[in-house]
Computed example of a mutant assay.
Amino acid sequence: MDDAVTVIVARYTEDVSWVERLGYNSVVYDKSDAPAENARQLENIGREAHTYFTHIVNEYETLSPMNVFVQGDPFDHLDDRGRTDVDGLRKQLVDVVDRALPFKGLAWFKLKCDRLGRPHDLRKLENKGRWAGWGRDIPVGAVFEELFHVPMPEQLIVRAPTGNFCVSGDRIRTRPISFYQHCLHLVEQDPFDEYNTGHAFERLWQHIFNGNTAWNSGYPVSS
């Protein structure tokens, strides 16, 4: 098993038996009433962003050289045919490690959006009632500016639009732990995603991990 890689899984009720087949160390965070074996239980709030920031804050000093953040069933986002392709995911991860990439989105597509997350599908009638923020825009601009204290560009290219990505431990630590504590606080302030804060983070992962230390202003560094 490759100790240089840890797969961090945000599970609700999905079958996560595929994780073991990847052949990497893994941590499953579970928000269901019937947690998977050996999973770490979390309160069911804040979408996968809550899970990811919880892991980063708790493991900040001991993060793996490469950290793979994925949802409990990521495969319809990783493959345009929706296949459960564990071998394909493993090949992507091997490539990321071999090339020492500091960040890579794993979705098969990219998005372009404005400060309200448009275009988006949060008003689809078939999704009505699935979460409290249905029908609202996504506060991408507001969250961007709250995090980085600079104006958001007119549009963003979103390179990890589904919340499935790889990021190195070194790249994570280009921002102080206080930054991630603030991120965690923001999601906890919108626990049921009434204002789509969790959706906003889905549009911002590549900026959170872009290594631009000039955006760290205002975040204290622990001694």
Rank of each mutant, 00 (worst) to 15 (best):
D95R: 15
Y60F: 07
V221W: 04
N67V: 11
D114Q: 02
S222W: 04
S17W: 08
V97C: 07
V57G: 07
T62I: 06
P161F: 02
G46S: 05
K104W: 08
E145R: 02
G23C: 07
Y29F: 07
G163D: 07
V19A: 10
G117A: 01
D170Q: 15
V5I: 12
Y52L: 07
K112Y: 07
G88T: 02
I8W: 02
E154V: 05
C183I: 11
G198V: 04
Q189S: 12
D73I: 06
I8A: 00
Q71I: 08
V9D: 01
N196I: 08
G88V: 05
K112C: 06
V143H: 01
D137S: 01
G46N: 04
D170W: 00
V68H: 01
L184W: 09
E126S: 05
D95F: 13
D3Q: 15
P151N: 03
E202Y: 01
G129P: 09
Y24H: 00
K112E: 12
P151S: 10
T6K: 08
T197Y: 08
I208W: 03
V221D: 01
D98C: 00
T213V: 12
E37Y: 05
H149E: 03
R173V: 06
K104D: 00
G169W: 02
P65A: 09
G117R: 01
D33E: 11
T54R: 12
K104P: 04
Y219S: 07
G211F: 08
D85E: 00
R47S: 11
E43W: 09
R47W: 11
V70E: 13
N127S: 13
D73Q: 11
E43S: 07
F144R: 02
Q71Y: 04
G46C: 04
H207N: 11
R175E: 10
R123F: 06
N212M: 04
V96S: 05
V167A: 10
N127Q: 13
N127M: 14
A160C: 13
K128I: 14
D80G: 08
